[in-house]
Design a protein around this nucleic acid. Structure first.
Lengths: 337, 337
DNA sequence: TTGAAAGCGTTACCAG
DNA sequence: CTGGTAACGCTTTCAA
């Protein structure tokens, strides 16, 4: 792809590049006739400014980096798509990287992004990550950073949903519909997102005076298989749960599978609520009641926070996007006594 | 993010940049001691070559562009993820763009990518696209291009699945399991992918001597709503179908919804087979029999074809990734007479 | 073994 | 209104 340059145009017209540069950017000081000629040649030659030369000149890349645990997961893909759209609207390109939920890859992603001289980074840490030095290092190097979806509380701006409150609402709703043995399926405890949701769950139990059963709380690695075996274990208990809260999409899906594989009826034998996307809920059967998250808002807010930092605002902001329970067929109607 | 440059290192050591450049790239002609010093300073200063300067110098960007109709759709996200991984392995960066299934955005995406001086482009055309000039223009400008998933047959290398044969296999299977009124849900007829799958479907009907009913063929815009209303129309026929083939993921999901919303049993009242991903099938209930596509193979083959072109091979190649029917609970067992 | 200088495409500054 | 030139960071060629 051989592109025409300003120099080429200048040569053809026997003039200087600087004049071409001015004309092409509509800066005063070029005679209208000459400007016309230059524009015509540029048009005909399909002139496009070389973004690398411009970057070099201005020492600014107009590029931001994104790190997600898994783009092929609808949840993240939707958020990324929105960040991308907002970034483009503001003249930024995105480099999207995928940590595959591992710490090692996450470090590599950041390495790649800093090598590319991105001006800022929006990241959702992997579930494995417990050491956040690699992220804090960016901050120290004055690279704008925004966390989303998972916020380990390390003094960096973030956008998350109301984890505690939403879990509390879910638990209340289940209790009010008659459930008494409510199980909680989470990620590893190190994940603050899991900790918070579990906190909301426990709080709600206490508030309603429902006894807390530790055997009903399963917090392991987030994966289909671990969700499956955890749920089967729950169902095999002498006193199995009458409701399950799945704090992650994968866990919800695997729980659903486990329940139907045991031939149990939803919600009659076991109710289920998950942190899943509208789309996944629509597809499930019976449709799973879910915590509705405004993913696009998370995306645009995250970019907005980054933009603030790019524009020199170095305050640490925490945005909480409100998520609330949407009832579908996987939970019983609330019982009025 | 102020990065240290070769010049900075040179200045600190009172030497010339060219020496630094050679040392850092391990080119002979630098004394071991000096090299050590340079490497130490580079290490300490966190030196990273400025990719923009390198690109400018070499007139090569090591960047490719990807255009998909919708990244938030699992199918595309999975393919893109693989392309990205393969590209990185080969030293290329990816710029991912999203046409949102519209022609207008698709043109914008290509514009953006050419502005970025990408060295090649991997694209799945939007379902709206009927005029392929914008893609052919790339080809004429000698930009390597590879199509995937949808191939309008315009003389450009591509990776697709065996559309005709897979649809034929699906139809045969349904007929053999007792279905006689098999409906076909497709995208617009202009989409060759739809045309091919429909072709396989009709061929199979003819081969088995099952009469073709035009009222059972619904080919419209691919969207949840259109799939929903088409399926409802089918179910409202005086003689409704006893099986439905959904040639796209969205159509399969909407058909599933429509069927259950009518309280019909799957597969007893209506069987269903869809072109959906393993993941979506796992999640559906009853699990939908599907045409299993090796998405990661599509991704890596697509990149491979692009790489061939990047390396100067200008032959047009068409790769067909074999997809085959996977039976689940949404179709009846085959009847042995 | 090292240095000096040119050049990639662009913009900014100063002269004319 | 236009031209010349330096500069961004890096590599390459030629000279010392």
């Amino acid at each position: 792809m051989k592109r025409i340059s300003q120099r080429d145009i200048a040569r053809q017209l026997g003039i200087n590049v600087s004049t071409v540069s001015r004309a092409l950017r509509g800066i005063d000081g070029v005679s209208p006739e000459l400007k016309k000629q230059i524009e015509k040649l540029a048009e005909d030659g399909g002139y496009r400014p070389n973004p690398f030369a411009v970057s070099l000149r201005y020492d600014t890349t107009r590029t931001i980096g994104i790190v997600v645990p898994d783009v092929s997961f609808n949840h993240f893909a939707t958020i990324v798509k929105r960040i991308e759209a907002e970034a483009r609207k503001n003249g930024y390109m995105c480099i999207i990287t995928d940590s595959d939920e591992t710490y090692k890859n996450e470090v590599n992603c950041l390495e790649l992004l800093t090598n590319m001289h991105v001006e800022g980074i929006i990241i959702c840490p992997s579930q494995e990550t417990t050491d956040f030095d690699h992220i804090l290092r960016l901050k120290k190097a004055h690279v704008p950073v925004v966390l989303f979806d998972r916020d380990p509380n390390i003094g960096i701006s973030s956008v998350i949903i109301n984890d505690v409150a939403s879990a509390r609402q879910v638990t209340h709703s289940l209790i009010d519909s008659g459930a008494r043995r409510i199980a909680f399926l989470g990620g590893l405890n190190q994940l603050k997102q899991t900790a918070d949701r579990k906190h909301g769950y426990l709080e709600a139990l206490r508030e309603r005076g429902v006894p807390i059963r530790t055997e009903l709380v399963k917090c392991h690695h987030i994966s289909f298989n671990s969700g499956l075996s955890d749920t089967l274990d729950l169902l095999d208990l002498p006193e199995p749960p009458d409701a399950i809260i799945a704090s992650h999409g994968l866990l919800a899906i695997s729980a659903l599978q486990a329940i139907t594989s045991r031939g149990l009826r939803i919600p009659d034998d076991v109710a289920i609520v998950g942190y899943i996307s509208d789309w996944v809920s629509e597809m499930s059967h019976p449709r799973v009641s879910f915590v509705k998250q405004n993913l696009r808002e998370i995306g645009s807010k995250a970019f907005r926070l980054l933009l603030d930092q790019l524009n020199g605002d170095d305050s640490v902001q925490h945005v909480v996007v409100n998520a609330r329970l949407e009832l579908r067929e996987s939970t019983r109607k609330i019982i009025n006594e």
